[in-house]
Design a protein around this nucleic acid. Structure first.
Length: 107
DNA sequence: ATGATGATTGGGG
DNA sequence: CCCCAATCATCAT
């Protein structure tokens, strides 16, 4: 499969999220000039460069974990939580504990 | 070109 | 909790 121009832009923007920080689909969408956070999730879902391109650092606007490789629960989804755990990004009942870890890629 | 499908979001009952 | 519309890249028809 080929990487579309849109995917390239999303991956480049995602790569700017520092280790130990997270951003939301909405903010990342804004960063690439797209008004569909859902379309961004679509691109991240097919990220062939994980975890180099840290698609695990994108969560929902309500600060809940969100999906991963098309899953919202289960082993693959758990992988997202584990990757973040290694970066000291923790969740309580599925919700990000420290909101200060949010990163705005638009800056 | 047309319709369906998402790693979403915000609003409503 | 569930349902719905808006949004848009991508893929199937």
């Amino acid at each position: 499969m080929r990487i579309s121009d849109f995917q390239a832009r999303v991956y480049r923007a995602a790569s700017r999220i520092p280790r130990g920080r997270v951003t939301t689909y909405k903010l990342l969408a804004a960063a690439v000039g797209c008004r569909s956070p859902r379309a961004v999730g679509q691109a991240l879902r097919h990220n062939p460069f994980a975890p180099e391109v840290p698609c695990h650092r994108i969560i929902r606007a309500d600060l809940t974990v969100g999906g991963f490789v098309g899953e919202e629960q289960g082993p693959l989804w758990q992988r997202k939580v584990d990757l973040l755990r290694r970066e000291d990004v923790l969740f309580r009942r599925g919700v990000l504990i420290d909101a200060a870890r949010l990163y705005n890629p638009a800056l």
